[in-house]
């Protein structure tokens, strides 16, 4: 048995294969630099269809715990079918964030469900940019749209996005600082900004 465990093992609503997902995660974990002794559990909520995407990447007792909406791996053209390039990009991005959480300077980062959308969006840009440099699927404009949605449609936010997308090394404090700079330049009323965790979640 490998270090990756996928739940459920058998899918009912979607045509996904837990063995394929586990082998992709195993391969990508090595490429993102997740230490060999870190076990990876992946839970997929197959009841959530496109466009209800969502994911979390946490570290609990030294092990990586990833959660994905089934929509994150779904092919938009063919309902219920697995889109491998998209799944690889999603896995790599979240494995990067799990690896980040193992670094001492990310010790103060809250669990994903407690993170503000703006900060989560900032971290996701950095993680996806690294995944793209590994050769995984690039969805730069999509990621930038998400980033703008939570960090503002401003020149400051766009400059921050470029820096995050192409950067290799950030600390948790630097990510927080970037998100704060975006918030300071955001002309939206404070109530419309995403500086607090969202109340509802797709994760059950």
């Amino acid at each position: 048995m490998g270090r990756v465990e996928v739940t459920p093992q058998e899918f009912t609503y979607v045509e996904y294969d837990s063995g394929i997902i586990a082998s992709l995660a195993e391969e990508l974990a090595g490429r993102v630099g997740l230490p060999d002794d870190v076990a990876i559990s992946i839970e997929i909520d197959e009841e959530l269809p496109l466009p209800l995407t969502g994911s979390t990447a946490d570290v609990v007792d030294g092990n990586a715990e990833l959660w994905f909406s089934g929509a994150n791996f779904e092919n938009g053209k063919y309902r219920c079918t697995f889109d491998e390039p998209v799944a690889r990009a999603e896995l790599a991005t979240n494995l990067f964030r799990a690896r980040d959480r193992l670094q001492p300077d990310f010790a103060s980062a809250s669990p994903d469900e407690e993170l503000a959308e703006a900060l989560r969006g900032t971290w996701d840009v950095w993680a996806e940019g690294r995944a793209v440099r590994l050769g995984e699927l690039a969805r730069r404009v999509r990621r930038q749209y998400v980033f703008r949605l939570y960090n503002g449609f401003t020149d400051v936010a766009d400059a921050a996005f470029d820096r995050l997308w192409s950067g290799d090394d950030f600390t948790w404090a630097e990510l927080q600082s970037i998100s704060e700079q975006c918030a300071a330049a955001d002309p939206r009323p404070a109530s419309k900004r995403k500086g607090v965790p969202r109340k509802e979640s797709l994760k059950q």
Binding site: E47, P51, L52, G54, R142, Y145, L149, Y150, R198
Partner: peptide, 28 residues
């Protein structure tokens, strides 16, 4: 899956930026 989603209590279904998956819902 649509029926399963309907059974969940995930708050308002209105398309708003602070709703879960807002970006992908808007894109689709």
């Amino acid at each position: 899956r649509q029926a399963k989603v309907s059974e969940r209590n995930t708050g308002s279904a209105k398309l708003e930026p602070d709703r879960p998956a807002a970006a992908d819902r808007a894109r689709q």
